[in-house]
Nucleic acid binder design. Structure first.
Lengths: 250, 250
DNA sequence: CGTCATGTTGAGCGTCATCAACAGGAGTGG
DNA sequence: CCACTCCTGTTGATGACGCTCAACATGACG
């Protein structure tokens, strides 16, 4: 079993320990680094395309998206992240941001200066490997999203997104299973779901109604229950293998 | 100017040197490692989803795609790679492939065993950083493809793909510029272009006719000329910033 | 025989419009 | 101080209509 991590930085350290075995003293340093965090409201840009950040953010609580806004004003969400994520670690190697990182809900964010991060990676090479692995995982998820956007129908896309998020959430204790059912909170508006799936919010609405009517998903507000995950996964052509590196060891 | 690399491994070493400064002895070792290569025909799978490769491939000449095939048999190409690329380096850290790597044309491929790669990374930590940076670049490209697939019309998607490939090719000396025009070879069939853009091959055909009729692209067989790159880029909402890490320094 | 080209037809999804449900804030009165 | 109402902005739900693009032709070209 991976060591138990408490406090606001708990999920962050848990996630990193999934990606590589961090020595205890490194965990302590990282824990202290994100100690002073900031609270942000929903729809707040943490970093914008073109920025040159001097620190990395750590999502301690809440949801954020990567997104790009086209010339016509249309926004595409390219990935979703929740507690424990370090979505702008890339700024260490690739100084200019090529996209925005925006909160989707009220969010608690910690920051680690690049200089600290660099010296930590020098002292603990395993940290660099953990973040490389994290980048590879993100790339695998991005590939699956490309398939979702390019090769699946509206209902399948929506179902696939729910399968992915349910799986990722469960692995970090944020979904509860009872039998083959899975219950979790996904606090995104239909507009945001549309921006993630390349659909209009109206059509997201219709797709979710289809999923509800077919009995595959139950919903009250932002709480969802997938009544039969294998069935929904088969419908959406969801195969969790591409997420495997993220699964915590037990 | 980056050092000049000759021979079949030239583009490979050139690419790596864009991502980090490799010491000369490392370059020599890498050059020798890919010496004995294999010739593959078009439409040949180099690695398949589910495989656990024990070596990394290096594309010495030709084109390959990453792709995933859905349950309904529909294929989505998630990225395109040409000479110099190392598309399955991820298998070092993430042993099971989550996608296929398939040749698009006749291709010359070299192989480097994982064991060699690992010991090289131990001896030369800069190599690990180069490949992490390569992963970050791929991720940036994947994000832009998500935007392409989710938020742009058929003609814009097609135009954007041509802008991206023209830019990437020019940076490696595989496109010739005359004024604001750019000429290059992109030896993909319309079926393959459709699989990359999430469109049917028929609609790719129509989109390209639109681009030809509007005078933005000229074509003979697989040779294309973008008559006015800034104009096409404006039309496609193409901003090359997301590719910057790949640009060779001069 | 695979690839490219082009016409026809219709499904899927976007756009626009309307309306209900709901939350938060300001003001009112107890 | 707390309840209650009113107002307003945001989200969700649903119908009507039109356009983009997929599907299915068929022929031409290497």
């Amino acid at each position: 079993m991976a060591p138990h991590f408490n406090g606001p930085a708990g999920t962050f350290l848990q996630r990193l320990n999934v990606l590589a075995d961090l020595p205890a003293d490194l965990s302590t340093v990282l824990h202290d680094l994100v100690a002073n965090s900031r609270s942000l409201g929903a729809n707040h840009d943490i970093v914008l395309q073109g920025d040159q950040p001097s620190q990395c953010c750590v999502i301690l609580e809440g949801w954020v998206s990567r997104n790009k806004v086209g010339a016509a004003g249309k926004r595409q969400i390219t990935s979703l992240h929740f507690s424990g994520a370090t979505p702008d670690i890339q700024s260490l190697l690739h100084p200019v941001m090529d996209h925005n990182i925006t909160t989707l809900t009220k969010t608690e964010v910690g920051f680690i200066p690049h200089s600290h991060m660099r010296s930590l990676m020098e002292r603990f090479p395993v940290l660099k490997e953990a973040f490389w692995k994290d980048t590879l995982l993100e790339l695998a998820i991005a590939r699956e999203w490309e398939v979702n956007l390019g090769a699946r129908s509206a209902v399948e896309r929506t179902a696939h997104l729910f399968c992915e998020m349910a799986t990722r959430l469960e692995w970090f204790g944020r979904a509860t299973r009872s039998g083959s059912a899975l219950r979790f909170e996904l606090p995104l508006t239909q507009i945001q779901l549309g921006e993630a799936t390349g659909l209009s919010s109206v059509h997201i609405n219709r797709s979710m109604r289809t999923l509800r009517n077919s009995g595959m998903i139950e919903q009250s507000r932002h709480w969802f229950t997938i009544s039969d995950l294998p069935k929904l996964a088969a419908f959406a052509d969801f195969n969790p293998d591409y997420l495997l590196a993220e699964r915590p060891r037990d």
